[in-house]
């Protein structure tokens, strides 16, 4: 049988990306607990593996052996489907993100393949579409559990995601205008080179306001502190996944961390020049991508353990009265500049 090496390489790529996402979620759980511990002057997990680095795996094994509980009044089918929708949406969004230059895998392939699962020419819109599917996982989980805490958590979460999606989209629209393309690969390639020989041509320097708006909206989109109302413990027990246990709870947990990785990866591609960086040869450039994504993720963790939670009305007021107008003004200013400078 004649096997096409390009197809094998693509399948391999999908396999690698999927496993890297799962691993990065595990790494994030460990990082979060460690950073949190140091910020609170504790030691954190340090028993399983080096400095507790195997703790997430121990947790997963423990979760697997837990009993799968389901409330009697729950809607069976939707209760089972909800975490699956959440996890699938989280993984699918990463498929359009490029993380390196084209490679032939040291001459193994005749045609070079890009380090990216698929290069769609409407990549940014695909990420949006998939993110909007993720809302269903949360809403269905809240509704089908038939518990007031779950329902309130789901309502909050979806209202928050819908509100902040606007600012998020407008911040991205400004970048799309600058690059003149919706493909993430083309947007990254557009940031190649330097101004005055040393400042990288990243969109971060052209779009500082847009970057800040994107990062804030990204925190709200991923339901993290200081915007973690959907699971505000003091008010809602655990929000939309109150009634979930064992692996279905783990799926929600996984989806949350994978979403964080995706938001950071999109920010890296749009504002921080993706995989581009100095000194390293082309085939190693994905290292820069990993470093940039890691720094953004660290920033998220740092923020979570530094800032207290807002109040829900403050969140809505901030989103609609400050962030949204700022995003609109940013978009207009960018449009005017692009027209003026051609």
């Amino acid at each position: 049988m004649n096997v096409n090496p390009t197809i094998v390489a693509h399948l391999g790529l999908i396999f690698v990306v999927f496993n890297m996402l799962v691993l990065s979620a595990a790494f994030m759980v460990w990082l979060e607990r460690k950073v949190c511990a140091y910020i609170q002057d504790r030691v954190g997990p340090n028993r399983v593996g080096f400095e507790g680095s195997l703790q997430p795996f121990a947790d997963v094994i423990k979760l697997m052996f837990k009993e799968e509980l389901r409330p009697q009044a729950a809607d069976r089918l939707l209760f089972v489907i909800a975490p699956i929708i959440s996890a699938c949406a989280a993984f699918a969004a990463f498929s359009v993100i490029p993380f390196g230059t084209e490679t032939t895998l040291f001459g193994l392939l005749e045609e070079p393949i890009p380090l990216q699962v698929t290069d769609v020419n409407v990549a940014i819109l695909v990420i949006f579409a998939i993110a909007s599917m993720g809302v269903y996982g949360i809403v269905l989980a809240g509704w089908s559990s038939n518990s007031k805490y779950s329902l309130l958590g789901a309502l909050r979460s979806s209202a928050q995601m819908i509100s902040y999606e606007l600012s998020y989209a407008l911040a991205l629209a400004a970048v799309i205008m600058l690059a003149g393309s919706l493909s993430l690969r083309e947007i990254v390639m557009d940031q190649e080179g330097y101004w005055f020989g040393f400042i990288p041509r990243w969109y971060l320097f052209l779009q500082p306001v847009g970057f800040v708006i994107y990062m804030i909206a990204g925190v709200a989109e991923t339901n993290r502190a200081p915007f973690d109302f959907p699971e505000a413990e003091q008010e809602l027990v655990a929000g939309y996944h109150t009634e979930y246990s064992s692996m279905s709870f783990a799926l929600f947990f996984l989806a949350e961390y994978v979403n964080m990785v995706t938001v950071s990866a999109v920010a890296t591609s749009l504002y921080l020049g993706g995989w581009l960086g100095p000194f390293l040869p082309d085939w190693l450039q994905w290292v820069y991508f990993l470093i940039k994504v890691f720094l953004l993720l660290f920033f998220y963790v740092w923020m979570r353990w530094t800032l207290p939670r807002y109040r829900y009305d403050q969140l809505m007021e901030f989103g609609w009265k400050w962030l949204f107008p700022a995003a609109v003004l940013n978009l207009f200013a960018t449009a005017a500049l692009v027209l003026w400078l051609g």
């Binding site: 409407v122 949006f128 579409a129 909007s132 269903y136 329902l151």
Partner: peptide
């Protein structure tokens, strides 16, 4: 027509159906 496909998901499956879901819920 990938653009049409994606807008179909964002607008109909994403935005409008969330509204439906809210009303039903």
């Amino acid at each position: 027509a990938p653009f049409t496909a994606v807008t179909q998901i964002i607008i109909y499956a994403g935005a409008i159906m969330v509204l439906f879901l809210f009303v039903v819920m």
